[in-house]
């Protein structure tokens, strides 16, 4: 069977990132790691709070795993290729640069997200827990937000060590200081300032919402801001990749 040229390149890019034991290790772990959803759901008296807590990154193992795989793909596969010049062999294949960028983006960022989404939805269906779609969307948008930051950093800084440090500082700073700031503002009950910081860590607002607050418009504005920043970063990394000089 002969595949089209684009598909052959895509398969090459995909296979490089998901070699033999990767999928076998990652997919079952993601599926099983969702037991925290059940555990927190039980502890919270079958309320929204348990679902929200189980969806906070770092607490949720499968989310962290998806993020880590995306991080590894971007920094240590794509970033390494750009740093050492291995990307030239991909660029010299007879398809356009924008297509190569798209394939790299899909296999680096979108496929781990699809794994996470599939395993989480399968688990939620099996366990009979109905997850609010907006909670899922919060993580999806946040995932694109942080992975696009790493992607842009990779294309501008190039060296894997520096990218790892820089992205840890940037993303960690955004989430941790955003969380601290939002917590302070939640205690202060200053709604206008909450809108400003809401894009930094919407999970805190979700916890507030589950505890009986009314923060839904703030959460939606935060997700929208996250999505806009993610799209801007995606476009900018696409521009940088198209003009990449090696």
């Amino acid at each position: 069977m002969r595949y089209s040229r684009s598909f052959q390149v895509f398969r090459m890019i995909f296979r490089e990132r998901y070699r033999e034991p990767t999928l076998e290790l990652v997919l079952p772990t993601m599926l099983v790691a969702n037991i925290f959803l059940n555990a927190y759901y039980e502890r919270s008296g079958f309320q929204l709070l348990g679902i929200v807590l189980a969806f906070v990154p770092i607490i949720s193992v499968s989310e962290t795993l998806a993020f880590a795989i995306g991080f590894r793909n971007i920094v240590y596969v794509t970033g390494d290729h750009i740093y050492k010049g291995g990307i030239i062999s991909f660029i010299t294949t007879p398809i356009s640069r924008s297509k190569i960028f798209l394939y790299i983006y899909i296999s680096d960022v979108i496929i781990p997200l699809i794994f996470w989404l599939l395993t989480t939805l399968a688990y939620a269906t099996m366990a009979g827990i109905s997850i609010p779609p907006l909670v899922l969307l919060t993580f999806i948008v946040g995932y694109f937000f942080s992975e696009n930051i790493i992607f842009t950093l990779t294309l501008t800084l190039r060296s894997p060590g520096i990218i790892t440090l820089a992205s840890l500082f940037v993303i960690g700073g955004i989430f941790i200081f955003g969380g601290i700031g939002l917590y302070y503002l939640l205690l202060k009950r200053s709604i206008e300032e909450l809108y400003l910081l809401s894009f930094m860590n919407p999970y805190l607002l979700w916890i507030g919402q589950a505890e009986g607050g009314k923060f839904m418009p703030i959460i939606i504005s935060g997700i929208t801001a996250d999505a806009l920043i993610a799209i801007a970063l995606f476009v900018s990394s696409f521009m940088i990749f198209r003009r990449l000089e090696l």
Binding site: E20, E24, L27, P28, L31
Partner: peptide
Amino acid sequence: GLIIALGIALLSL
């Protein structure tokens, strides 16, 4: 390999 691993995961769940 993937199918065996998923089977073990489902069984453990």
